[in-house]
């Protein structure tokens, strides 16, 4: 008998094993849901799958009586807009500052303790300050994402800059490059795919801040919606919404990964 560490499943088994836990969860859910509904047809905690689909299609395909919008579409668009703004501004900040402090020692001395300090602040703790300073509008939600994500991303980019082999930097100096040319021709092109990776890593955190900010003060958005319907114990809306948010997160990650592989075939190879 081979050692356990040397036994690998075949392709089919691999796929089946991957799906198995999901199927199990589904079966357990359906079983418990049926049992509860048999006891009390009005049970809200574990709604049947048909009920979830029904409520979700109402959200997705019927115009709201109050505002005349498609609720799901409206929520998704406004959440994604906030997320995109927060993440893009953070990425731009991280690219500029991360490279600057990675390349210029004087800037490292000046800025890196500050960035380090900001990355340690529990961002949710300053949400009240943001609401006071920026009001309850869009700005404070975007700023919350930026404050939560930009310092981590900057530190990440700084680390990646430091990982570029010093031989390469010395080599381009012997080819006559000045500091600015090293930044534009070597650092930025080499760091860009790493920035995309940094975005992928920090997106999870960005979602947390987005949902939190929407839960506290918003009039539309995915996070707003699930916290709103929580009052009516509407699990038939919350559960599909969570799955939808997870799917969006997966989709964004997948697109960014493809983007990196297509555009930077050299990335990650020596």
């Amino acid at each position: 008998m081979k050692r356990l560490i040397n036994q690998a499943p075949s392709k089919m088994t691999n796929m089946f094993l991957g799906l198995l836990p999901f199927l199990l969860i589904l079966v357990v859910y359906m079983g418990s849901s049926n049992a509860r509904l048999a006891e009390n047809p009005n049970d809200k905690l574990l709604p049947s799958i048909e009920k979830c689909i029904g409520s979700m299609s109402k959200m997705a395909f019927e115009k709201s009586k109050r505002s005349g919008d498609y609720i799901l579409l409206n929520d998704t668009l406004s959440s994604l807009r906030r997320l995109a703004m927060g993440v893009c501004i953070s990425a731009l900040f991280a690219l500029v500052i991360g490279i600057a402090i990675g390349v210029v020692p004087y800037l490292t001395s000046t800025l890196s303790p500050l960035i380090w300090f900001f990355s340690l602040i529990p961002t949710m703790a300053i949400l009240p300050i943001l609401f006071i300073v920026f009001g309850l509008g869009e700005l404070s939600k975007v700023v919350l994402i930026i404050l939560g994500v930009a310092p981590i991303m900057t530190r990440e980019i700084y680390q990646r800059v430091k990982e570029i082999p010093s031989e390469q930097i010395i080599k381009v100096q012997t080819l006559g490059a000045n500091t600015w040319q090293i930044i534009t021709r070597v650092m930025i092109p080499q760091i860009f795919p790493r920035l995309i990776d940094a975005i992928r890593i920090t997106l999870g955190t960005a979602w947390i801040f987005l949902i939190s900010a929407e839960a506290i003060a918003a009039t539309e958005g995915l996070g707003y919606r699930i916290f709103l319907v929580r009052r009516y114990l509407a699990m038939d809306v919350i559960l599909p919404y969570v799955i939808w948010i997870t799917f969006l997160a997966f989709l964004i990650d997948f697109i960014l990964k493809q983007f990196n592989q297509r555009l930077f075939p050299w990335f990650g190879k020596e």
Binding site: I170, Q173, V186
Partner: peptide, 19 residues
Amino acid sequence: QEPSDERGIVFQRYSTLSH
């Protein structure tokens, strides 16, 4: 006091630009 284009270098590894 710093590298310049009067003196070229070839290291054992990492001398080329991967991108």
